Computed example of a mutant assay.
Amino acid sequence: MEVASEKMVNRDEITDAAQSMFAGDSTDIPESYIRTDEVLAAEVVGEDEAYELPVVDMAKLLDPDSSAMETEKLGHACRHWGFFQLTNHGVDEAVAQLIKDTTVQFFSLPLDVKNRVAVPEESAGIEGYGHHYSRGRGDKLDWAEGLILITQLVQTGT
C-alpha cells in the first residue's frame, strides 16, 4: 500500500520570491504552474447541474451493524470526490469554529512568522508549514501554502 507521504512532494519553505510571485497584481506565472491543456480538457460542471456533497456518518462507521456500508460510502467519496462532509463526529461546534478562526489567523501572519514552523529541512516527513502538493499529470505544480499537523488523541493514565 502506498503511503500518502510517498506521493507528496514538499518544499521545506515558502520563500518571499515564491510568495510575491502570486501576490497582488502579478501576471507573470511560471510555466510549471500553468495547466492550459488540462483545463481545456477538464470536465466543467454547468450552471444547470447540481451535485450533492458526499456525507459520511461517523456514528455509522463505528456501529458494527452499519460500518461496512458506511465504509463503502467513505471509500467512494475518497476515490471519486477527494473530500466529504463528516457528521456525528462529536466535535463541539465551538471547537470547530475556533479551529477555522485560528486557521485564518495563521495564514494571515507574515511569511517570516509562518516559516518558524516550516517543515524542517532534515525531516523526511510532511508535518509543518510549506508547500504541500502532489504532482499530478505531467510536471505541473499546484500552488498552495499549507500547514500539516499530525495529531493523536491525548492518552490519559488510568
Rank of each mutant, 00 (worst) to 15 (best):
G82T: 08
A94D: 12
L149Y: 03
T158V: 11
I150L: 07
V117P: 01
I126L: 08
A118K: 14
L153M: 02
L86E: 00
K60E: 14
F84K: 07
A96V: 12
K140R: 14
E6Y: 09
T156Y: 08
P64R: 11
V119T: 07
T151Q: 00
D142P: 02
L74I: 08
V39D: 12
G146E: 03
V95T: 15
F22Y: 02
L74P: 01
E13S: 12
M21Y: 03
V119N: 01
F107Q: 10
A50G: 03
L149H: 02
A41F: 03
E47L: 12
N10R: 13
F83Q: 07
A68K: 10
A23N: 12
T36S: 13
I99P: 00
G138F: 03
Y133S: 11
N115F: 06
P30M: 11
L98N: 12
E6T: 14
D12H: 13
V91Y: 10
H131R: 10
S123T: 06
D92S: 09
M58V: 15
L111C: 11
E93G: 05
Q105K: 14
P120F: 13
D12K: 01
H80L: 07
G82R: 06
A96D: 09
G82A: 04
P54H: 15
A18F: 03
H131A: 10
N115I: 05
F106V: 12
R79T: 06
I126S: 08
V95S: 13
A59M: 07
F83R: 05
K100F: 11
L111Y: 09
N88A: 13
C78S: 15
A94Q: 10
E127Y: 00
P110Q: 07
N10C: 15
I34V: 15
H132A: 08
L98A: 15
E121C: 02
A118W: 00
H89E: 06
M1T: 04
K140F: 03
E121H: 04
A42T: 14
T71D: 08
P30G: 10
A4C: 04
V3Q: 11
W81E: 04
L61N: 06
W81G: 02
M8N: 09
K100V: 15
S108I: 06
K7F: 05
E38K: 12
A124E: 14
M21Q: 15
E31G: 04
D112A: 06
S26E: 08
L40P: 01
E122P: 00
M1A: 10
L62F: 05
G128W: 00
V154D: 03
M69Y: 01
Q105H: 12
E31Q: 15
E145N: 08
W81A: 09
V104H: 08
G24F: 09
P30A: 14
L40G: 13
L111H: 09
